[in-house]
Write a protein that binds this DNA or RNA. Structure first.
Lengths: 180, 180
DNA sequence: CTCCGTAACTTAACGGTGTTAAATACAAAG
DNA sequence: CTTTGTATTTAACACCGTTAAGTTACGGAG
């Protein structure tokens, strides 16, 4: 069965799911793919690039599918929940994104594309990017604790994850000034 | 020069500062301390415990010193800025806290102590802990991006770190209902 | 059919990692 | 002097990401 980037990334997610980020190694991934470790380096530059590929798939999934919402606040809330949802959907998804580097092929167009949904709903580009960043940061920080085994058990005795995240996300977005 | 937990943690921070989290290894730390690597295991259970010790020092620093503020909102804002400040004060401080486990010796008293500053300013314990968690999550998520070399360069072209963090922190806290 | 070049992969190795078990130094106590 | 416990070293294990060099597979050109 031949190797390619897509199959590598797919199996990488399976390995992450099965063994977690700490045991996520190039060598174990190669075993799963029925191949010797260095074979992966033909298709992928480094483990870091592979992680970046995985993270970018996560980010892209979170941005998709909120077309029906007309208010930027509603869009941001939906996006925030989707972001947390995608992070939680994979074991150690948050830590994965925490170590991932940005897409090196990012251009001014990428930047425009990122801001587009919010611009279309009335925000200026600078504000749009700032708001987006804030929501992503909240979701990432939140899920990092939520997915940290020990922290999870410790914190779930202190408050409810779902309810508290929803409350803080809604508070933050409600608190954003109409335009700035 | 004899070894003890305090000296280990201190030198660990120095190593983190000098070489970053990726190069932060037990072996390099031992070299810095003029000792063979396994010597550290007499004083510390594992690298994970050492990281937890370091993270807890960070958290404690962030909580200290906001006595003058009488409103819980003001206290939370000061704490949020302090939290980000302490994370930024050490290279890879955010990622360090992201992988740290909670204090295993945490009790119901610890929980009470955590919530105390907010309870003293009028919040119920459950709400206090939830609010505290939200602010920490925002600060952690934010600084993770801020300290990720590639992401930093990528994002600083999109918005201003200081201003955007302040805006989202203030928005979130302003958006929290008076009591819930 | 043969030759060649490229793509895709393997084998072998390098220098690193966290951690453990066993042997050792050393100071205090009896 | 001997014993005891603390603190450290030496040696080793099983991993890790990555590179260099060798090998196979295969498609197109002559």
């Amino acid at each position: 069965m031949k190797l390619d980037r897509d199959r590598i990334v797919e199996e990488a997610f399976a390995l992450l799911e099965a063994d977690g980020l700490d045991a996520f190694s190039v060598r174990r991934l190669a075993t799963r793919l029925g191949v010797q470790p260095p074979a992966l380096y033909w298709h992928v530059e480094s483990k870091a690039e592979l992680v970046t590929l995985m993270a970018q798939r996560l980010y892209a999934e979170a941005r998709a599918g909120h077309e029906g919402l007309e208010e930027w606040r509603d869009w941001l809330i939906a996006f925030g929940h989707a972001m947390r949802g995608r992070l939680l959907a994979h074991r150690d998804g948050a830590r994965l994104c925490a170590v991932a580097e940005p897409d090196r092929a990012a251009t001014a167009e990428t930047r425009q594309a990122l801001a587009a949904p919010l611009i279309a709903r009335g925000l200026g580009e600078d504000v749009a990017l700032s708001r987006l960043g804030s929501v992503i940061a909240l979701a990432l920080g939140w899920t990092i604790y939520e997915q940290n085994g020990g922290m999870h058990d410790y914190l779930e005795a202190l408050f409810d994850f779902d309810a508290s995240f929803a409350a803080s996300l809604e508070a933050m977005i409600a608190g954003f000034p109409r335009e700035a």
